[in-house]
């Protein structure tokens, strides 16, 4: 027992982040194998596409949350911000009858603006990220209900709107794999943000801020401005999630959104991003989001009751955070 744990911790020392990612990936494979054996329906193309479709919204939100969490912060407002952006898109497209591109711009722009506000609260007013984004979460939930008059806004006047999520650009080229656009958006976004994190100045400062903010400041970097930029980028990504979910439902549902932030954070954590900041990856977050979707889908196919699905999700989150704690303790010791 001791020798095993010693061996594990010795192996974990040099690249514990990579190890956690590997662990997450292995868990995903195990889940896939398990459910394929347990149910013949699981590996059907239609089911795989359903899993991916179900991942798209949570995956996009989790990418946004990853950026903020790597800086050592947290964003609790991603879920209600997504809804708020969907409602704004509804206002622009349905109430005002503007063309589709303007609606898309409005949703993403609103997200970025709200992220800018959250970032300013954290960076300039020094409000702890948990509190600042908790406040934003409630404000945005309320505003969504106020603006929409608590009723869904339908996109019936914009016939091409559902195409954003449910159409299939890939399917038009390769009819055999009708991957929905929502999933395509998720994967393209993951590639882009993965590149931004690892190859650009903004990404470098994400890791640097999460690693030692004071040191970055003493190096003459305008840490406040970068932090605000990172929150704004995360907000813009929430706007994209808002478009995907509104397009799938062909409506902006103002009551939706609460609880999505926790699913997103769960995906991030399961994917091996440290809540303490400084470490994390988009690849890990994608695996984390897929694990959650596969788990829920598989349990549903096996006819496990909805309430038990929730219990299992909770257990997975605790296990993942515990793994994160163990990893940090090893890194410290």
């Amino acid at each position: 027992m001791t020798s095993v744990s010693a061996a594990v911790s010795a192996a974990a020392k040099p690249a514990s982040g990579a190890q956690q990612k590997l662990l997450a990936f292995a868990s995903l494979i195990v889940l896939l194998v398990f459910f394929s054996v347990a149910s013949p329906n699981f590996l059907q193309t239609s089911n795989i596409l359903a899993i991916l479709q179900a991942t798209s919204v949570n995956g996009v939100l989790a990418i946004a949350a990853t950026l903020v969490i790597i800086t050592g912060g947290i964003d609790l407002s991603v879920g209600t911000l997504m809804t708020f952006c969907a409602v704004i898109a509804g206002v622009v497209l349905t109430y005002w009858g503007m063309p589709l591109p303007l609606g898309i711009l409005a949703a993403i722009g609103t997200g970025a603006a709200c992220g800018f506000i959250s970032g300013s609260l954290v960076a300039k007013m020094k409000i702890p990220p948990f509190i600042a984004t908790l406040g934003m979460m409630l404000i945005l939930k309320g505003l969504s209900l106020v603006i929409s008059g608590t009723k869904p806004i339908y996109f019936n006047d914009t016939p091409s709107f559902p195409e954003i999520s449910t159409g299939s650009l890939i399917g038009q080229i390769v009819p055999a794999v009708p991957v929905p656009n929502g999933v395509l958006i998720l994967f393209v976004l993951a590639l882009v943000i993965g590149y931004v994190l690892n190859r650009t100045v903004l990404g470098r400062y994400c890791f640097a801020l999460g690693s030692n903010e004071e040191a970055v400041r003493l190096s003459g970097v305008n840490t406040d401005a970068w932090k605000i930029a990172i929150y704004a980028l995360a907000g813009g990504i929430c706007g994209i999630a808002g478009l995907i979910i509104a397009s799938r439902l062909n409506s902006a549902q103002p009551a939706l959104g609460l609880g999505y932030e926790l699913d997103a954070i769960a995906a991030v954590v399961i994917g091996g991003t440290s809540l303490a900041g400084g470490r994390g990856s988009i690849l890990g977050t994608m695996i984390g989001a897929l694990i959650m979707a596969v788990l829920l889908n598989g349990l549903r196919i096996m006819s496990v009751a909805q309430e038990w699905q929730t219990v299992v999700t909770g257990l997975i989150i605790i296990a993942a955070v515990y793994a994160d704690m163990l990893r940090r303790r090893r890194a410290a010791g």
Binding site: R204, F207, A208, S211, N212, A215, L218, S219, G278, R279
Partner: peptide, 9 residues
């Protein structure tokens, strides 16, 4: 005095 480095970079 306290090293001001970013450990993860």
């Amino acid at each position: 005095q306290e090293l001001a480095l970013m450990n993860d970079l």
